[in-house]
Design a protein around this nucleic acid. Sequence first.
DNA 1: ATTAGAATATTTGTTTGACAAATATACTAA
DNA 2: TTAGTATATTTGTCAAACAAATATTCTAAT
Lengths: 250, 250
Amino acid sequence: MTVQRKTTGLEFDDVVTTSAAKQIAESVRGAILEGRLKVDERLPSEDELAVRFKVSRPTIREALKRLAAQHLIRSRRGPAGGNFVTAPTAVDAAFSLANMTTLMVAVGHISLDDMATARLELESVCCRLACQQRTQADLDAMNVEIGLQKKSALTDEEFCAADVRFHRALVNAGGNAVMKFLMHSVVEALQPISNMVIYRVRERQAIVSYHKRILAAVEERDEEAAVKALADLVAYTQDSYRESFARRTA
Amino acid sequence: MTVQRKTTGLEFDDVVTTSAAKQIAESVRGAILEGRLKVDERLPSEDELAVRFKVSRPTIREALKRLAAQHLIRSRRGPAGGNFVTAPTAVDAAFSLANMTTLMVAVGHISLDDMATARLELESVCCRLACQQRTQADLDAMNVEIGLQKKSALTDEEFCAADVRFHRALVNAGGNAVMKFLMHSVVEALQPISNMVIYRVRERQAIVSYHKRILAAVEERDEEAAVKALADLVAYTQDSYRESFARRTA
DNA sequence: ATTAGAATATTTGTTTGACAAATATACTAA
DNA sequence: TTAGTATATTTGTCAAACAAATATTCTAAT
């Protein structure tokens, strides 16, 4: 353990103790992010790192596991083994962000309104990008889900799953990797609430009709119409979301 | 170590070995995200967890440090100590996301074009929200940075820092917590490239004039004009970004 | 009665030393 | 030439102990 004291001008803030493992993790992370350690480069062995940082091997392992949890390194045993710098995938990033936003919404650090606004705005961006970039395969993927959602024998879970796939296909159609995983994260964070929404038959039919409007607009490459249809859909489902959220936090 | 085999239909995929620590971390994370462990709730002590999961205390500690690295728990020593579920802050989320996107850009998982497009689209959303939600304090904060950037004695670092603060003030003016930290993350991931851009005096003047246009449009609550000015600014600086990125990856 | 200091107990942080498991490579026998 | 075995290297896990931080209780002095 080492002690770090934060000062502001002449006033002394609280003393902060940071574990050795955490500090070592920060040091290695800095080297990775500043390019001094390259992706796929092998770190020194755990024993070597222990010597270099003058701590024990379990302490090194705690530091390394922090980095692994942040998708910055990966490990392998054996003579060609070691710990290697890795680049996170979009799935990793979405997963991490989704986990954090889920908790932030749960405790009110982020309001549901902010989340819903962000979701709509982000998906509007994706809608416009989809109008520009969409392929026939994208249109087909969206149409498959519409076809599924029309079926009256669908369970609530199946309807929700098809809904998620429709929106995912819409986002994928935009072809932008960053928007894809940001969108995925926001949707994932809203998932516990979305899954509590149960739509009546009439509501399902309305949702399907909004989806059809969106698909038609994307096919026509009509950005304004696509964004309008999406905004209408979100406004229509907003009340159901509020009810589910209230039930979830009760 | 336990072995997990993934199968798809009749084909057997690679055997995947997952460490005990990682599996325990996943188990606890699931409990947190599903609401079975509440924020601020104290986990059983490390010794108790070791008994419960039938592993050693160091293995438990590795699992817990993974969760700490993901901003899901925090720890404290002493009789009232323990490991507590925590809610990440927006700063935590932005920090994690920025680290991952930095590496993803560095290795080409995300193209610079996708990043730049996402940055422009996200900031356009913030622009429009800013037109709707901005306060006089927001306008003042943006104006302060414009005033600073006008000064010819500014170093390159100071100019860049003022630029970042201007865009941050613009994003803050939108008042949406989710957009704030998503935007912060994208900007942070582009920071190593932004910091390499050096603007000539004439370029600085052009940037300041774009900033003025944005400020005026936000003040007038003219969403279209604000988004247009931002798009023009981004188009103007795009070539400088490409040059810096090429230099960084050389 | 109040307060400062000391003692105690609890929990996490770190260490030492050892062994298990995974795995790449080299060697040997068929 | 190939299959099987042995070896060596590195990470994964363990046991046991002690250090450090810290909340609470107790005691002595005022």
